[in-house]
Design a binder for these strands. Sequence first.
DNA 1: TACAGTGTACTAGTAAAATATAACACTAGG
DNA 2: CCTAGTGTTATATTTTACTAGTACACTGTA
Lengths: 124, 124
Amino acid sequence: MKFDDKVPIYYQIKNHLYHEMMTGQLAPGEKLPAVRQLAVDLTVNVNTVQRALGEMITEGIITSQRGKGNFVTTETPRITQLKEHLIMDQLERAYEQLHALNLSDEEIIASLKQYIAQRGQQDD
Amino acid sequence: MKFDDKVPIYYQIKNHLYHEMMTGQLAPGEKLPAVRQLAVDLTVNVNTVQRALGEMITEGIITSQRGKGNFVTTETPRITQLKEHLIMDQLERAYEQLHALNLSDEEIIASLKQYIAQRGQQDD
DNA sequence: TACAGTGTACTAGTAAAATATAACACTAGG
DNA sequence: CCTAGTGTTATATTTTACTAGTACACTGTA
């Protein structure tokens, strides 16, 4: 996996796993890959994986069962809530950054539309 | 100044100064605050400031004159170009993150509009 | 009971970022 | 010439992220 060296790897792993939950690649109640397997998949150390998972356990988004594995919570509201939270975080960050670049609300929306339009012509 | 501990301070300083240029708080040709003064203002070490400035000098966005100070480039196209670049970076990051959260192009635009509308009711 | 698969914990080491501190180099003005 | 203000460079230290390696604890199954 490719990482942005400007932000901690364990943090990017968290987001990576979040996304897999949001897109349904990891369903509620489903077992995550074993920590050692994740470490191999992400070409990262076990401890780094563990650090990411540790925070997610604290957040209650996954649960850990010693000897069995780590599992996505079955409390679906928690997942929905997390998704909302992640979306708002992204919007807020982007908005504030663009606003700081002196763009008005209208310009921000317009530039996003333009970006998506341009992007659509290329790939994805 | 408040910093996000998830990304290097010197990097955040760069962005901070970028923004001041974009908004005209730092005009083309204008002298930047002295490095030691910046260090005090940002409650940060001189070397950290220097690292940020060093990269900006390499990028040609500011020029350094020993004994005089650091100055914003007078080549306004360079500034315009940088602004475009920063905007695109933000849009790309936000789009990819939201897309990874399983939002369609339309949903992305809609949620941004909604966010801005909600925000407008509160402050700013 | 033995063993394979799992999570958890600990120690040690490396690298990068940031700090503190000091020194050096140049400019402008008295 | 001296000095205050400026950029530049260097050394040592601390903190954090990450890695490597090892060991321990629990579960399920043969």
